[in-house]
Design a protein around this nucleic acid. Structure first.
Length: 613
DNA sequence: GCGGATCAC
DNA sequence: TATGGTGATCCGC
């Protein structure tokens, strides 16, 4: 099927004849191509099936656009490289070498860091409940797969793949809905064991963790490899799930290594400079956490495929990709990474967000309902995490898959649905005005610039005071964890007073805010007699985003009313479109992840972030 | 500071 | 027929 009828001149959606389908098809293969379990798969055939399943869809066209843009960007990079190649780069070369030398001085080979990764975690947990699933290709997830077992991977099925595509690759694929609570419970069992090996271990996600096992090895007279063997055996014994592990001098090496003997295996890179350099030399840059498909292609275009290729290009990298990218790549070349492993609770959260995908919506009222829904979701999440946001962002995805964001700084930190809604609505209204015939497939809200609403942790003196989450059964308060700061008890009374003052101020701002926002609200409202100004009376009224009629501005009354309208609306929608049922009905009780997850990536997203302070 | 983009899971 | 949600960071303006 390679070329049969692929380029009929009449079809405007076909790429230009000279366009390279290779990069596009590679793009369509998805991000987890480098993951384990794909070795024996005929990628050629798989990408052909995916391509044909996707061809012509809006998603496909968007991917095609992105692919074209990347190709253009790479042309620019190459042009710039050609220009630089003609220049004298000796000073850049010197700077690069100085930086490498500086990094080399920071090399720390004294720690044994491991990265533990559960094998096909969600699928494995499901197989525990239903052993018969072990013998069939199976995946977890609805519209998009979150995990699949290794039998499914033999067909080219991967996480992140649309389930209808997966079904094309593997018609007998068994699809299970996600049961996050179950996975969370299992993850806790595993963490309990990991805590024996490093009480200060760091959860990187629900199924991954970093541990520093140096003290454990010292205390028990074990080599790192032996300790990890023991831990993996213990995990399998008591929880019945297999994990893979990587062992190295830092988090970056451990992370890479944990993928090398998957599933149910481990791999160690010795804590020796030469061994590390050799390990990195032949390692594809794509295997490094932070190098995705885009950066991989950019690097490849200038001849950097393996980490060893970084060195000969060191003089150019900063100019071509930026200083941060250069620093990141320098550390890849040297095999350097973070050795500090700490509980995820100590990390400071930067944002709280929610978003939902739905069938294409162009109707303004329906969009307001979605916005209201998002506002309510975000209010819940902000309450759970105990934050308010100084910045509020609206995110939309057009029916073409193009993503736009708009943000605003409310006059005071916001956390209530009504505030989130009323500050977000003008942004949505403006987008509707600017984009004729707008149709959305996703809408979301995000709060950043967070302010803690915790009574004790009012962030005096800029101290990040994240109290330990309720999850830690914490048999004992920080005994071994003596490093935890005990100095945030201070000024409790002042904190309360300040909070009280703030609350009064908030109330006043509220009223003021409301009087300003009502005119915007009237965008949502039908003309309704065109009498606008009278709404700003002492007992404030809010427009219901659904029925657009003003309601008494009491939280409970208002919410109940809107919920009622929403449920009526939901029923109408479901009647029209059953396929969207789950995303429209407010039953999202199992939506969230576990408290301690917080998703702190182990290292620089792409070329970013310094990890050596 | 804002908006777009990339990345991880 | 049809392609997710949450959080983070960096770049160019």
């Amino acid at each position: 099927m390679e070329s049969s009828g692929e380029n009929p001149a009449s079809n405007p959606q076909e790429p230009a004849p000279d366009e390279d389908l290779g990069t596009l098809k590679y793009q369509l293969l998805g991000p987890s191509l480098t993951k384990a379990g794909q070795d024996s798969v005929d990628q050629q055939k798989v990408s052909e099936i995916i391509y044909n399943a996707s061809k012509g869809s809006k998603f496909f066209n968007h991917e095609q656009d992105r692919d074209r843009n990347l190709t253009l960007k790479i042309e620019q990079i190459l042009k710039e490289k050609a220009r630089l190649d003609r220049l004298d780069l000796s000073s850049d070369l010197r700077r690069a070498d100085e930086y490498l030398a500086e990094l080399e001085l920071s090399r720390d080979l004294s720690q044994h860091v491991i990265h533990v990764d559960c094998d096909a975690f969600f699928a494995a947990v499901e197989e525990l409940d239903r052993p018969e699933l072990k013998t069939v290709p199976m995946a977890v997830g609805k519209g998009v797969l979150t995990t699949c077992n290794y039998l499914a991977r033999k067909f080219g099925v991967r996480s992140g793949m649309a389930s209808f595509v997966a079904k094309k690759l593997c018609p007998q694929l068994v699809l299970l809905p996600q049961n996050y609570d179950k996975y969370t419970a299992k993850a806790q069992e595993i963490r309990a064991i990991m805590a024996e090996y490093d009480p200060l271990f760091e959860s990187a996600s629900i199924d991954e963790a970093y541990l520093n096992i140096t003290p454990y090895c010292d205390e028990n007279g074990l080599q790192p490899g032996e300790a990890v063997q023991r831990m993996r055996a213990e995990i399998l014994e008591t929880t019945k799930v297999t994990v893979s592990a990587g062992i190295g001098a830092n988090a970056k090496i451990a992370k890479i290594a944990s993928n090398l003997n998957k599933p149910n295996g481990q791999f160690q890179v010795p804590n020796e400079r030469e061994a590390i350099m050799e390990f990195m030399r032949d390692l594809s840059v794509r295997k490094v956490n932070g190098v995705g498909r885009v950066f991989e292609r950019e690097l490849e275009s200038i001849g950097v495929k393996k980490c060893g290729d970084i060195f000969p290009h060191r003089a150019l990298l900063a100019k071509l990709f930026g200083e941060k990218a250069f620093q990141f790549l320098a550390q890849c070349y040297l095999g350097l990474g973070r050795t500090k492993i700490e509980p995820v609770e100590t990390h400071e959260r930067k944002s709280v967000s929610t978003e939902t995908t739905f069938h294409d919506i162009g109707d303004k009222e329906e969009l307001r309902a979605k916005l209201w829904w998002a506002a309510q979701e975000l209010e819940k999440d902000l309450a759970r995490t105990q934050f308010k946001g100084r910045t509020l962002a609206l995110k939309i995805k057009l029916h073409t898959f193009e993503v736009l964001t708009r943000q605003t700084a409310p006059s005071r930190p916001v956390s209530l649905a009504k505030d989130l809604y009323s500050f977000a609505l003008p942004m949505l209204a403006k987008l509707e005005k600017d984009i004729p015939n707008i149709k959305l497939r996703l809408l979301g809200l995000r709060c950043s610039n967070l302010v803690s609403t915790q009574k004790v942790g009012l962030n005096f003196f800029g101290i990040a005071t994240q109290p330990k989450p309720a999850t830690a059964p914490a048999s004992k308060p920080p005994v071994s964890a003596s490093s935890v700061n005990a100095d945030h008890e201070i000024c409790v009374e002042e904190a309360f007073e300040a909070a009280a003052r703030q609350e009064i101020q908030d109330e006043m701002n509220d009223l003021e805010q409301l009087s300003q926002e009502i005119p915007d609200g009237s965008i949502a409202r039908e003309p309704e007699g065109s009498a606008t100004p009278e709404v700003v009376e002492t007992p404030p009224m809010w427009d219901c985003p659904i029925c657009t009629r003003p309601q008494v501005a009491d939280d409970r009354t208002f919410n109940e009313h809107v919920d009622f309208c929403l449920s009526r609306q939901t029923i109408r929608e479901v009647a029209q479109d059953t396929s969207e049922e789950t995303s429209l009905i407010p039953h999202n009780s199992r939506k969230r992840k576990m408290p301690s997850q917080a998703g702190i990536p182990e290292m620089d997203p792409k070329q970013k972030r310094l990890f050596f302070q």
